[in-house]
C-alpha cells in the first residue's frame, strides 16, 4: 500500500503540492491525471523519494524519506519522464543497469525477457543512442521492469512508479505497455503512473487521481473521476465523457484493453 498523508512539496520557493492525502493499493493500476502544471510529476517525484517534502509518503509502512537508496530500489522502480544517456551503451547494458540493486541484482538472464516484453526482442547488442525515441522509451521501461521483475517478493508487493510511460509510443505499443502493467498489477504488484491520455487512463486504470493546482480534486474509479463533473473544472475546458460522437466525426477508440478483448 502506498500511503500519502498531508503531502506538501515546495519547488524553487513556490509550493507545488498543498497537502495530498491518498492511498494506492498493490494489485491495482493507479493513474494520475490533471492539466499541465497541476503537480503530477512533482507528486510522482515525491513518491519516488526524489523530493524533499513535508507530510508522509510511505510504501507498505516504510517512510520513503528514511529508506536507503538500495532499500528503496528493492521496493519500487521509477521511470522518469525523460532519460538521457551519456555514453554509447548497448541496449542490453542499459537494461542491465536496472539490476544494479534490488531483489534481482545481477541477474542478467532477465534482460532478454524484459526486452521481449516491450517488443524489442534481440535488440540487446544494438547501440541505445541509435534507436528511435519510442524504442529508447521502451528500453527504459525494460530497464525499470527488471529492477522489480517479480511483482511480489517475499510476500511484499513491488511498485512501478511511471511518469508518462507511453508518451513517445505509437498506439499499438501504448496498448501493449498497458497490458504489461495490467498483468503486473493482476499478479499482485503496484502500479502508479502519470498519464496524459484520458481515454487510456479510463481504459487502463482501476483508480484515477485527478490533480488540480497541487490539490487532489477527485479520486476514485475511472467512471467516477473521468465521468465526473470535476474533470471539466480541472482542465478548464468543456469535457463530457461518454456522450455519442457528433455525426460524421472521425475518432479512434482502441477497444483492445477492455475485458475479453485482450
Amino acid at each position: 500500500m502506498l500511503t500519502l498523508r498531508s503531502l506538501r512539496a515546495v519547488l524553487g520557493g513556490r509550493p507545488v503540492l498543498h497537502g495530498i492525502d491518498a492511498v494506492a493499493r498493490a494489485g491495482r493500476v493507479t493513474a494520475i491525471i490533471g492539466p499541465n502544471g497541476s503537480g503530477k510529476t512533482t507528486l510522482l517525484r515525491a513518491i519516488a523519494g526524489d523530493l524533499p517534502h513535508s507530510g508522509s509518503v510511505a510504501i507498505d509502512g516504510a517512510e520513503v524519506a528514511r529508506l536507503k537508496p538500495w532499500d528503496l530500489a528493492a521496493r519500487r522502480a521509477v521511470l522518469p519522464q525523460a532519460t538521457t544517456l551519456a555514453f554509447p551503451f548497448t541496449v542490453a547494458e542499459v537494461v542491465r543497469l536496472g539490476l544494479t540493486a534490488g531483489p534481482h541484482a545481477g541477474r542478467s538472464e532477465l534482460v532478454e525477457p524484459a526486452l521481449a516484453e516491450v517488443d524489442l526482442p534481440g535488440f540487446g547488442p544494438r547501440l541505445y543512442q541509435e534507436l528511435s525515441g519510442g524504442q529508447q522509451a521502451r528500453v527504459q521501461l525494460a530497464r525499470v521492469r527488471v529492477q522489480v521483475w517479480d511483482p511480489v517478493v517475499a510476500g511484499r508487493p513491488c511498485w512501478l512508479i511511471l511518469d508518462e510511460p507511453v508518451a513517445a509510443l505509437d498506439i499499438a505499443h501504448q496498448l501493449a505497455v498497458m497490458r504489461v502493467l495490467r498483468r503486473y498489477a493482476d499478479a499482485g504488484g503496484g502500479v502508479v503512473m502519470v498519464l496524459h491520455d484520458l481515454n487510456l487512463a479510463a481504459m487502463a486504470a482501476d483508480e484515477v487521481w485527478l490533480l488540480h493546482e497541487g490539490r487532489l480534486l477527485a479520486a476514485g474509479s475511472p467512471a467516477e473521476v473521468i465521468g465526473g463533473a470535476e474533470l471539466a473544472r480541472a482542465y478548464g475546458c468543456p469535457l463530457t465523457a461518454n456522450r455519442p460522437a457528433p455525426p460524421g466525426a472521425t475518432f479512434v477508440l482502441p477497444h483492445a484493453l477492455w475485458a475479453g478483448a485482450a
Binding site: 530500489a73 528493492a74 544517456l85 544494479t100 534490488g102
Partner: peptide, 12 residues
Amino acid sequence: ALGEAAAHHIGL
C-alpha cells in the same frame, strides 16, 4: 550515465 535521478532510482 542515466542521470542523477535515475541513478538514485536504481539504488545508488
